[in-house]
Protein backbone atom coordinates (compact mmCIF):
# COMPACT_ATOMS: atom_id res chain seq x y z
CA UNK A 1 0.00 0.00 0.00
CA UNK A 2 1.35 3.35 -1.04
CA UNK A 3 2.39 5.40 1.97
CA UNK A 4 2.10 8.86 0.51
CA UNK A 5 0.33 10.17 -2.57
CA UNK A 6 0.96 13.80 -3.44
CA UNK A 7 -1.24 15.06 -6.22
CA UNK A 8 -1.03 18.44 -7.96
CA UNK A 9 0.64 20.09 -5.00
CA UNK A 10 0.66 23.82 -5.55
CA UNK A 11 2.15 26.21 -2.99
CA UNK A 12 2.02 29.99 -3.33
CA UNK A 13 3.27 32.70 -1.03
CA UNK A 14 1.67 36.14 -0.80
CA UNK A 15 4.47 38.72 -0.58
CA UNK A 16 4.60 42.51 -0.76
CA UNK A 17 5.93 42.24 -4.30
CA UNK A 18 3.21 39.88 -5.46
CA UNK A 19 2.28 36.24 -5.32
CA UNK A 20 5.16 33.79 -5.68
CA UNK A 21 4.67 30.26 -6.95
CA UNK A 22 7.06 28.09 -4.96
CA UNK A 23 5.69 24.69 -5.98
CA UNK A 24 3.79 24.30 -9.24
CA UNK A 25 1.41 21.32 -9.35
CA UNK A 26 3.76 18.48 -8.61
CA UNK A 27 2.72 14.86 -8.05
CA UNK A 28 4.67 11.96 -6.62
CA UNK A 29 4.23 8.81 -4.58
CA UNK A 30 6.22 7.08 -1.88
CA UNK A 31 6.08 3.44 -0.81
CA UNK A 32 6.91 2.27 2.72
CA UNK A 33 10.62 1.47 3.00
CA UNK A 34 11.45 3.58 -0.04
CA UNK A 35 13.87 6.48 -0.13
CA UNK A 36 12.86 9.23 -2.52
CA UNK A 37 15.57 11.80 -3.23
CA UNK A 38 14.39 15.32 -3.95
CA UNK A 39 17.20 17.20 -5.72
CA UNK A 40 17.29 20.80 -6.78
CA UNK A 41 19.11 24.10 -6.42
CA UNK A 42 18.04 27.13 -4.41
CA UNK A 43 14.51 28.17 -5.24
CA UNK A 44 13.55 24.81 -6.70
CA UNK A 45 10.83 24.33 -4.08
CA UNK A 46 12.25 21.15 -2.56
CA UNK A 47 12.22 22.42 1.02
CA UNK A 48 8.79 24.03 0.60
CA UNK A 49 7.46 20.65 -0.56
CA UNK A 50 8.95 18.99 2.51
CA UNK A 51 7.61 21.60 4.88
CA UNK A 52 4.14 21.27 3.32
CA UNK A 53 4.11 17.63 4.45
CA UNK A 54 4.17 18.85 8.04
CA UNK A 55 2.33 22.07 7.26
CA UNK A 56 5.25 24.11 8.50
CA UNK A 57 5.10 26.84 5.86
CA UNK A 58 4.51 30.40 7.04
CA UNK A 59 1.18 32.15 7.44
CA UNK A 60 1.23 33.72 3.96
CA UNK A 61 1.10 30.28 2.31
CA UNK A 62 -1.75 29.34 0.01
CA UNK A 63 -2.19 25.76 -1.12
CA UNK A 64 -3.87 25.05 -4.46
CA UNK A 65 -7.54 24.06 -4.44
CA UNK A 66 -6.98 20.85 -6.34
CA UNK A 67 -3.94 19.82 -4.31
CA UNK A 68 -3.97 16.81 -2.05
CA UNK A 69 -1.44 14.93 0.03
CA UNK A 70 -2.77 11.60 1.28
CA UNK A 71 -0.79 9.83 3.98
CA UNK A 72 -1.85 6.26 4.85
CA UNK A 73 -1.18 4.39 8.05
CA UNK A 74 -2.98 1.09 8.54
CA UNK A 75 -6.68 1.73 8.00
CA UNK A 76 -6.22 5.43 8.46
CA UNK A 77 -6.03 7.97 5.61
CA UNK A 78 -5.11 11.57 6.25
CA UNK A 79 -5.18 14.40 3.71
CA UNK A 80 -2.46 16.58 5.16
CA UNK A 81 -3.76 19.70 3.44
CA UNK A 82 -7.22 19.30 4.99
CA UNK A 83 -5.99 19.24 8.58
CA UNK A 84 -7.17 22.32 10.48
CA UNK A 85 -7.02 22.38 14.27
CA UNK A 86 -3.71 22.13 16.12
CA UNK A 87 -4.89 18.78 17.47
CA UNK A 88 -5.43 17.43 13.96
CA UNK A 89 -2.08 18.83 12.83
CA UNK A 90 -0.34 16.97 15.62
CA UNK A 91 -1.10 13.87 13.53
CA UNK A 92 1.59 14.90 11.03
CA UNK A 93 3.78 16.90 13.39
CA UNK A 94 5.58 14.21 15.32
CA UNK A 95 2.99 11.45 15.19
CA UNK A 96 3.16 9.99 11.68
CA UNK A 97 5.84 12.28 10.27
CA UNK A 98 9.25 13.32 11.64
CA UNK A 99 11.77 15.68 10.19
CA UNK A 100 15.55 16.00 10.33
CA UNK A 101 16.79 19.49 9.63
CA UNK A 102 19.95 20.78 8.01
CA UNK A 103 21.41 22.76 10.87
CA UNK A 104 21.15 20.70 14.06
CA UNK A 105 22.33 23.59 16.22
CA UNK A 106 19.42 25.72 15.11
CA UNK A 107 16.92 22.90 15.60
CA UNK A 108 17.62 22.07 19.22
CA UNK A 109 16.49 24.48 21.91
CA UNK A 110 19.75 25.79 23.38
CA UNK A 111 18.60 25.99 27.00
CA UNK A 112 16.91 22.58 27.30
CA UNK A 113 18.90 19.35 27.56
CA UNK A 114 18.93 16.90 24.64
CA UNK A 115 17.21 14.36 26.88
CA UNK A 116 14.33 16.62 27.83
CA UNK A 117 13.69 17.45 24.18
CA UNK A 118 13.68 13.77 23.29
CA UNK A 119 11.40 12.60 26.08
CA UNK A 120 8.92 15.45 25.77
CA UNK A 121 7.58 14.25 22.41
CA UNK A 122 7.47 10.63 23.53
CA UNK A 123 5.36 11.53 26.54
CA UNK A 124 3.10 13.62 24.33
CA UNK A 125 2.74 11.44 21.24
CA UNK A 126 3.31 7.98 22.64
CA UNK A 127 1.87 8.50 26.13
CA UNK A 128 5.00 7.12 27.76
CA UNK A 129 6.00 7.68 31.34
CA UNK A 130 9.09 9.72 31.99
CA UNK A 131 11.24 6.70 32.83
CA UNK A 132 10.06 4.72 29.80
CA UNK A 133 10.80 7.68 27.57
CA UNK A 134 14.26 8.04 29.07
CA UNK A 135 15.04 4.39 28.59
CA UNK A 136 14.00 4.46 24.92
CA UNK A 137 15.85 7.71 24.23
CA UNK A 138 19.12 6.50 25.73
CA UNK A 139 18.73 3.28 23.77
CA UNK A 140 18.26 5.19 20.52
CA UNK A 141 21.18 7.51 21.22
CA UNK A 142 23.26 4.37 21.62
CA UNK A 143 21.95 2.95 18.39
CA UNK A 144 22.86 6.00 16.32
CA UNK A 145 26.42 5.66 17.58
CA UNK A 146 26.64 8.22 20.35
CA UNK A 147 29.10 7.06 22.99
CA UNK A 148 28.24 7.51 26.66
CA UNK A 149 24.60 7.97 25.71
CA UNK A 150 23.28 8.31 29.26
CA UNK A 151 25.74 11.13 29.88
CA UNK A 152 24.90 12.87 26.58
CA UNK A 153 21.21 12.60 27.48
CA UNK A 154 21.69 15.23 30.18
CA UNK A 155 23.85 17.55 28.09
CA UNK A 156 22.88 20.59 26.03
CA UNK A 157 23.16 20.83 22.24
CA UNK A 158 26.20 23.15 22.40
CA UNK A 159 28.16 20.52 24.32
CA UNK A 160 27.93 18.12 21.38
CA UNK A 161 30.00 18.28 18.19
CA UNK A 162 28.29 18.84 14.83
CA UNK A 163 28.22 15.20 13.83
CA UNK A 164 26.97 14.13 17.22
CA UNK A 165 24.23 16.74 17.17
CA UNK A 166 23.01 15.43 13.82
CA UNK A 167 23.02 11.89 15.23
CA UNK A 168 20.99 13.05 18.24
CA UNK A 169 18.59 14.76 15.86
CA UNK A 170 18.17 11.50 13.93
CA UNK A 171 17.62 9.55 17.17
CA UNK A 172 14.98 12.07 18.19
CA UNK A 173 13.20 11.85 14.83
CA UNK A 174 13.19 8.03 15.00
CA UNK A 175 12.00 7.72 18.57
CA UNK A 176 8.29 8.18 17.76
CA UNK A 177 8.57 5.49 15.04
CA UNK A 178 7.20 7.73 12.28
CA UNK A 179 5.77 6.28 9.06
CA UNK A 180 7.37 9.04 7.05
CA UNK A 181 10.75 10.62 7.73
CA UNK A 182 11.71 13.86 6.00
CA UNK A 183 15.43 14.60 5.90
CA UNK A 184 16.09 18.15 4.69
CA UNK A 185 19.79 18.40 3.72
CA UNK A 186 20.79 16.27 6.74
CA UNK A 187 24.45 16.06 5.75
CA UNK A 188 25.06 19.44 4.12
CA UNK A 189 26.47 21.11 7.23
CA UNK A 190 28.73 18.16 8.02
CA UNK A 191 32.30 17.40 7.04
CA UNK A 192 32.75 14.72 4.42
CA UNK A 193 34.07 12.05 6.81
CA UNK A 194 31.14 12.67 9.17
CA UNK A 195 28.75 12.78 6.20
CA UNK A 196 29.86 9.26 5.26
CA UNK A 197 29.01 8.12 8.79
CA UNK A 198 25.55 9.73 8.69
CA UNK A 199 24.76 8.28 5.23
CA UNK A 200 25.58 4.79 6.55
CA UNK A 201 23.37 5.42 9.55
CA UNK A 202 20.46 6.50 7.36
CA UNK A 203 20.82 3.31 5.29
CA UNK A 204 20.73 1.17 8.42
CA UNK A 205 17.63 3.00 9.59
CA UNK A 206 15.69 2.24 6.39
CA UNK A 207 16.71 -1.42 6.58
CA UNK A 208 15.65 -1.66 10.21
CA UNK A 209 12.63 0.59 10.61
CA UNK A 210 11.21 0.38 7.08
CA UNK A 211 9.66 3.82 7.04
CA UNK A 212 9.39 5.92 3.89
CA UNK A 213 12.04 8.62 3.61
CA UNK A 214 12.04 11.81 1.61
CA UNK A 215 15.68 12.84 1.33
CA UNK A 216 16.24 16.41 0.23
CA UNK A 217 19.65 17.52 -0.96
CA UNK A 218 21.44 19.49 -3.64
CA UNK A 219 24.23 16.89 -3.77
CA UNK A 220 23.74 14.29 -6.49
CA UNK A 221 26.51 12.13 -5.04
CA UNK A 222 24.65 11.86 -1.73
CA UNK A 223 21.45 10.99 -3.63
CA UNK A 224 23.23 8.31 -5.66
CA UNK A 225 24.38 6.66 -2.46
CA UNK A 226 21.10 6.83 -0.51
CA UNK A 227 17.98 7.06 -2.68
CA UNK A 228 15.98 4.43 -4.56
CA UNK A 229 14.17 6.93 -6.72
CA UNK A 230 14.95 10.55 -7.45
CA UNK A 231 12.86 13.57 -8.42
CA UNK A 232 14.76 16.52 -9.89
CA UNK A 233 13.13 19.89 -9.19
CA UNK A 234 13.63 23.23 -10.90
CA UNK A 235 11.64 26.37 -10.10
CA UNK A 236 8.83 24.49 -8.38
CA UNK A 237 8.44 21.76 -11.01
CA UNK A 238 9.53 18.15 -10.99
CA UNK A 239 11.28 18.07 -14.35
CA UNK A 240 12.54 14.50 -14.21
CA UNK A 241 11.85 11.50 -12.02
CA UNK A 242 12.81 7.85 -12.03
CA UNK A 243 14.96 5.16 -10.42
CA UNK A 244 18.22 6.71 -9.25
CA UNK A 245 20.39 4.57 -11.55
CA UNK A 246 18.33 5.45 -14.58
CA UNK A 247 18.28 9.18 -13.94
CA UNK A 248 21.99 9.48 -13.14
CA UNK A 249 23.17 7.22 -15.97
CA UNK A 250 20.69 8.25 -18.66
CA UNK A 251 19.43 11.70 -17.72
CA UNK A 252 16.73 12.73 -20.18
CA UNK A 253 16.07 16.36 -19.25
CA UNK A 254 18.59 19.02 -20.35
CA UNK A 255 18.63 20.46 -16.82
CA UNK A 256 19.55 17.12 -15.21
CA UNK A 257 22.18 16.66 -17.91
CA UNK A 258 23.54 20.16 -17.23
CA UNK A 259 23.61 19.57 -13.49
CA UNK A 260 25.58 16.36 -13.93
CA UNK A 261 28.01 18.05 -16.34
CA UNK A 262 28.58 20.94 -13.93
CA UNK A 263 29.77 18.61 -11.17
CA UNK A 264 33.54 18.38 -10.83
CA UNK A 265 34.29 14.67 -11.10
CA UNK A 266 37.26 13.02 -9.48
CA UNK A 267 37.38 10.25 -12.08
CA UNK A 268 38.33 12.66 -14.83
CA UNK A 269 40.36 15.68 -13.83
CA UNK A 270 40.84 16.76 -17.45
CA UNK A 271 37.14 17.20 -18.11
CA UNK A 272 36.33 20.93 -18.30
CA UNK A 273 33.76 22.25 -15.85
CA UNK A 274 30.64 23.13 -17.80
CA UNK A 275 28.31 25.48 -15.98
CA UNK A 276 24.62 25.63 -16.82
CA UNK A 277 24.53 29.04 -18.57
CA UNK A 278 22.69 31.96 -17.01
CA UNK A 279 21.25 32.30 -13.54
CA UNK A 280 18.27 30.80 -11.77
CA UNK A 281 15.44 33.27 -12.52
CA UNK A 282 13.85 35.20 -9.65
CA UNK A 283 10.62 33.57 -8.43
CA UNK A 284 8.88 36.83 -9.31
CA UNK A 285 9.82 36.38 -12.96
CA UNK A 286 8.83 32.78 -13.57
CA UNK A 287 9.48 31.92 -17.21
CA UNK A 288 6.47 31.00 -19.29
CA UNK A 289 6.25 27.64 -21.04
CA UNK A 290 9.00 25.33 -19.86
CA UNK A 291 10.52 26.93 -16.72
CA UNK A 292 14.01 25.93 -17.85
CA UNK A 293 13.86 27.42 -21.36
CA UNK A 294 15.77 30.61 -20.36
CA UNK A 295 18.89 28.55 -19.61
CA UNK A 296 18.37 25.63 -21.96
CA UNK A 297 20.80 25.48 -24.86
CA UNK A 298 18.55 23.17 -26.80
CA UNK A 299 15.36 25.19 -26.38
CA UNK A 300 13.18 25.05 -29.50
CA UNK A 301 12.23 28.47 -30.78
CA UNK A 302 8.52 29.16 -30.80
CA UNK A 303 7.79 26.12 -28.64
CA UNK A 304 9.58 25.90 -25.30
CA UNK A 305 8.88 29.52 -24.28
CA UNK A 306 5.18 29.18 -25.10
CA UNK A 307 4.07 25.68 -24.20
CA UNK A 308 4.43 23.73 -20.97
CA UNK A 309 6.07 20.42 -21.91
CA UNK A 310 4.11 17.27 -21.01
CA UNK A 311 5.56 14.49 -18.89
CA UNK A 312 7.10 11.96 -21.22
CA UNK A 313 7.84 8.40 -20.21
CA UNK A 314 11.43 7.66 -21.24
CA UNK A 315 11.37 4.08 -19.99
CA UNK A 316 8.99 2.52 -17.48
CA UNK A 317 9.09 4.55 -14.27
CA UNK A 318 11.37 7.23 -15.73
CA UNK A 319 9.66 10.42 -16.87
CA UNK A 320 10.97 13.73 -18.13
CA UNK A 321 9.04 16.94 -18.70
CA UNK A 322 10.68 18.05 -21.94
CA UNK A 323 9.71 18.27 -25.61
CA UNK A 324 13.08 16.82 -26.56
CA UNK A 325 12.53 13.73 -24.44
CA UNK A 326 9.34 13.29 -26.39
CA UNK A 327 11.25 13.27 -29.66
CA UNK A 328 13.83 10.87 -28.36
CA UNK A 329 11.15 8.44 -27.37
CA UNK A 330 9.52 8.87 -30.77
CA UNK A 331 12.77 7.88 -32.44
CA UNK A 332 13.27 4.92 -30.14
CA UNK A 333 9.76 3.67 -30.71
Amino acid sequence: MTLLTVKDLEVKFATAEGEITAVDKISFELEPGEVLGLVGESGSGKSVTARSLMRLNAGNTRYGEGSSMILRSGEEEVDILRLKTPKQLRKVRGDLVSMIFQEPMASFAPAITIGKQMTEQLMLHRKMTKSEARELSVDLLNRVGISEASKRFDQYAFELSGGMRQRAMIAMALSTKPKLLIADEPTTALDVTIQAQVIDLMKEIVAEFGMGIIFITHDLGVIAQTADRVAVMYLGKIIETGPVREVIRNPAHPYTQGLLNALPKLENLDAPLTPVPGDIPSPLERPSGCVFHTRCQRAIEGKCAQMVPPEVQVVAGHTSACFLSEERQGVAA
Binding site: G162, V192, Q195, A196, I199, A224, Q225, R245, I248
Partner: peptide
Amino acid sequence: AIPSLDPDHQSTAIKLKGE
Protein backbone atom coordinates in the same frame (compact mmCIF):
# COMPACT_ATOMS: atom_id res chain seq x y z
CA ALA B 1 34.41 9.43 1.98
CA ILE B 2 33.32 11.44 -1.06
CA PRO B 3 29.94 9.97 -2.08
CA SER B 4 30.24 8.45 -5.54
CA LEU B 5 27.87 9.43 -8.34
CA ASP B 6 27.63 5.78 -9.29
CA PRO B 7 24.69 4.25 -7.39
CA ASP B 8 26.21 0.76 -7.71
CA HIS B 9 29.52 1.89 -6.31
CA GLN B 10 29.96 -0.17 -3.17
CA SER B 11 31.10 2.25 -0.54
CA THR B 12 34.78 1.67 0.10
CA ALA B 13 34.88 4.56 2.53
CA ILE B 14 37.57 4.07 5.12
CA LYS B 15 35.45 4.71 8.18
CA LEU B 16 37.12 7.11 10.52
CA LYS B 17 36.03 6.77 14.08
CA GLY B 18 34.87 9.83 15.96
CA GLU B 19 35.58 13.40 15.02
